[in-house]
Design a protein around this nucleic acid. Sequence first.
DNA 1: ATGTCAAGCGCAGCTTGA
Length: 262
Amino acid sequence: MPFTLATWNINSVRLRAELVLKLLREEAPDILCLQECKSPVDMIPFDLFAQAGYGYWAARGQKGYNGVAILSRLPLADAGHIDWCTKGDARHVAARLENGVIIHNCYIPAGGDVPDRTVNEKFGHKLDYLTELRDHFGANRPEKSILVGDLNIAPREDDVWSHKQLLKVVSHTPIEVAHLADAQESGAWVDITRADIPEGQLYSWWSYRARDWDAADKGRRLDHIWASRDISAAGHGSRILRDARGWTQPSDHAPVFATFDL
DNA sequence: ATGTCAAGCGCAGCTTGA
């Protein structure tokens, strides 16, 4: 049974519950992975999502920061949480579908403003988080697995509006790109979005600070869908719903979609 | 470099994070 999956950094699931419902109604992915829910799990309006047909969920939350949730209209079981860097934050949750597929929903640390771990702890945290993620999937080779989320890195030159101008900007620095590549290689993860759409500029995030995000189009592809190699050929239909960035009181991220024939 | 959001705390408007 094919299923469609979307990943979206919602930047507050309570403030934007109506936008989540709009996405579920209009685009109807089978599974929606959210990041930056910024809410304890018991305050997320799962009843609203259930009324829209999404009765299954797995989530981890904390007050004010981070937070990840998987909403599904297909039966799904909580498959645990990994606390990379052991800070007790809510940056990962996994779920298992009835067909055995494991979905990892990740929110990688943004990394602060200065791309130098000697003066910016948050940048060190980001690199260390990626290293621990790499080691985890190196030791636990993923099979029948999908990893999605706001990875907070735009790895390719055509994943940013200006490669040259962003080389020293956190999210596109060579050291981050190398750490992400190491994490990807350790799990033999396939970047489904780029396997599907190998050519051309592709963005999933536009800053709130740009006065006209659409016209300026200074975007970055920070949100990703990866699949383990054994199921990567089943992935297709990738797209980014740019329109959602223009919805009323939007998230600064747009949802990324892929379909898997499994 | 600029700039705009959101949550917490707590009831105004600051701080932190992105």
